[in-house]
């Protein structure tokens, strides 16, 4: 995955400004930066929710800048959202089953009964076991606690079997007791290997613990990139976070 000179302008304000980002295959890379640095906007560009004003995005060596979000998903890109984003009135199992259905390419079958696709249910169920939600499979998604909904989202993401996973603050807004469970799930995904992971996160200990490398964004611009240790020692980064006399990232 690679972005080149990626820029998006909202009413004169460049939320993401000329970002060049390269994420090698099977790499675990985190993106950090203060609020408003453009992290989520960058994700929206990568997953196609937003069209860039300038620049391009490459994925698996092809230019996907003009591709629609569903087509990017089918190319092997999956994302979770900062705001919990599930199907509230469908059951937990159905939420995951829809993801399994999409991945397995059952797209326009409008006449077969779902019972012909029992394996989808089974696969969805085993994914719910992975995120420890199997006991709630028949409840509507909206009845889950916030942290459980985040876990549900991760299960949906896993069901897509994406090569590139985009996690947008998976622990945002969940209680302290629930954080380790989510961390556990992400660690397990990382350990499985074979996936490139991009993570936006504010919890530094989590970033340092998981990442192969860390990219820092500041005011929509690329500020630094390096191993977790390098980033911790980087003076620019420190001043950006501490908000010192820092004016421009270039």
């Amino acid at each position: 995955m690679e972005t080149r000179d990626l820029t998006v302008v909202f009413g004169g304000h460049a939320a993401v400004n000329g970002v060049d980002l390269t994420v090698p295959r099977n790499h675990f890379q985190s993106i950090i930066g203060p609020n408003g640095a453009g992290k989520t906007t960058l994700f929206n560009l990568i997953s196609g929710q937003l069209r860039p004003s300038k620049g391009s995005i490459l994925f698996k060596g092809t230019d996907i800048t003009r591709l629609s979000p569903p087509l990017r998903t089918r190319m092997g890109m999956g994302r979770s959202f900062q705001i919990t984003n599930v199907f509230p009135n469908l059951t937990v199992l159905e939420n995951v089953r829809l993801a399994v259905q999409s991945r397995s390419g059952v797209r326009y079958n409008f006449f077969s009964a779902l019972s012909r696709f029992d394996w989808m249910r089974e696969e969805a169920f085993s994914l719910l076991e992975t995120v420890m939600l199997d006991k709630k499979s028949d409840s509507p998604a909206k009845s889950l606690a916030h942290g459980e909904q985040r876990k549900l989202e991760i299960a949906m993401l896993l069901a897509l079997k994406s090569d590139l996973l985009l996690f947008d603050e998976p622990t945002a807004g969940i209680s302290v007791e629930e954080v380790p469970a989510i961390l556990d799930v992400i660690r397990r995904i990382k350990a499985e290997g074979g996936r490139t992971i991009l993570l936006i996160e504010h919890k530094m200990e989590m970033v340092l613990d998981l990442s192969d490398s860390v990219t820092v964004l500041f005011n929509g611009k690329f500020l630094a990139n390096g191993s977790p240790k390098e980033i911790m020692d980087n003076e620019l980064v420190q001043s950006a976070y501490l908000g010192g006399h820092y004016d421009d990232a270039s």
Partner: peptide, 28 residues
Amino acid sequence: RFTRSPVGKVLQAIRENEQRTQSLGYEV
């Protein structure tokens, strides 16, 4: 039969959350 088919389920997903349906890879 139609509403209970795979496509029927996607329709319900669209009703629930259009953006999420897209990001699962369905062309809404």
